[in-house]
């Protein structure tokens, strides 16, 4: 049942055959591979007087990289904790891989919380092996994977050093290895890139994409919307404990429409005096960013510019950034899209 399997690309990976079969059986029992990796229905959680998550519906397809975005205090961490069954929701239901018993799925999940420490007195190898054992690996297997993993991220020569002697960047690598050591099918990462040095950010993204290619689903939360925009196929935006919108990044952008125009020209700018077409202008000399009124036709503006005799060197419809869309939608819904000073610590 066990053996080396060559994946489509990259190095051969050691596959725990028995575990693989358990997975296959689990999938058969559930009946469909198409069930989403995570499904939340009407999840609500309140801490004392503070609403942390309000009536949240969420569906995260298998194999996707999914971003949970929103300012600090929006309820992202609480949502992740509920998914992982670290805290229970006041109302609503959580399914992971089609099962409401998240407890039973824990060995298939890797979680990197925002607060990610290490036992300072343990050696890196021992530490990773310990994490592996918590996730159901046999000690021998866990030790072997720990060594391989440390080698792979360039910490091979420090494998038997105590974690307390590690630099911040080295500790970050070790923490991340701890999450993927048992090759989880679902990775849940809370603010994975915050506080990382730039080299590690690249390394982590690479490792994440490797896991995704191996079929894993990745759910990450971030308040840096640009990060999510670059990395995620799908996002869910949360503000003030409430979902603002979710879906494919592509679709969200398409739906938002292209109302922003980058314009470079020489000549008389009078054509820009068009309140019937333009909502807002930010001018930087000969380069101008224009926001069209909703429903206004950009082509009409271009025609007027040409007719006015201005020499157009650039006229480009700009995709709105996720950030812009988020702020717009949150404002529309009357939700706070600013960072709140309170953080969403569990405070029962």
């Amino acid at each position: 049942m066990e053996g080396w399997i060559r994946l489509s690309e990259g190095n051969p990976q050691y596959i725990d055959g028995a575990a693989a079969w358990r997975r296959v059986r689990a999938v058969r029992m559930i009946g469909a591979v198409n069930t989403p990796a995570i499904r939340l229905r009407g999840v609500t959680k309140r801490f004392d007087k503070k609403m942390a998550v309000r009536d949240l519906d969420l569906e995260i397809p298998r194999g996707s990289i999914y971003g949970l975005i929103g300012p600090n205090g929006a309820g992202k961490t609480t949502t992740l904790r509920i998914i992982l069954d670290i805290i229970g929701p006041d109302a609503g239901s959580v399914d992971v891989f089609g099962s409401p018993n998240v407890e039973a799925m824990r060995q298939r999940i890797g979680y990197l919380p925002e607060e990610r420490g290490l036992y300072q007195k343990m050696t890196a190898t021992d530490h990773l092996a310990f994490f592996g054992q918590l996730k159901g690996l046999k000690r021998k297997e866990a030790l072997a994977r720990a060594r391989t993993g440390l080698d792979a991220v360039g910490l091979g020569d420090r494998a038997d050093d105590k974690v307390e002697t590690f630099s911040k960047g080295m500790a970050q690598k070790a923490q991340f290895l701890g999450v993927i050591l048992h090759q989880p099918d679902l990775l849940v990462l809370d603010e994975p890139f915050s506080g990382l040095d730039p080299l590690n950010v690249e390394l982590f993204k690479q490792l994440l994409q490797e896991r995704q290619r191996a079929g894993a689903t990745i759910l990450l939360s971030t308040h840096l919307i640009e990060d999510a925009e670059r990395l995620c196929e799908r996002v869910c935006m949360i503000a003030g404990a409430t979902k603002v919108l979710d879906g494919r990044v592509r679709d969200i952008k398409a739906a938002a429409g292209r109302r922003d125009i980058a314009l470079s020209f020489e000549g008389n700018p009078t054509f820009l005096d068009a309140p019937d077409l333009i909502e807002d202008i930010s001018a930087h000399g000969t380069y101008v960013e224009v926001r069209m009124l909703e429903g206004a036709d950009p082509q009409a503006l271009l025609r007027r510019a040409v007719d006015s005799g201005a020499l157009i060197s650039r006229f480009e419809l700009i995709e709105p950034s996720l950030r812009q869309i988020f702020i717009e939608k949150a404002t529309e819904a009357g939700l706070s899209h600013e960072d709140e000073s309170e953080d969403d610590e569990a405070a029962a």
Binding site: L84, I86, E103, R106, I109, Y111, L112, P113, E115, R116, G117, L118, Y119, Q120, F131, L134, K135, G178
Partner: peptide, 17 residues
């Protein structure tokens, strides 16, 4: 106390009860 002070407890409780 060690669990709390080394910021590791959340990783722990995501793996075991």
């Amino acid at each position: 106390l060690e669990e709390k002070q080394s910021d590791i407890v959340e990783i722990m409780v995501s793996s075991l009860r």
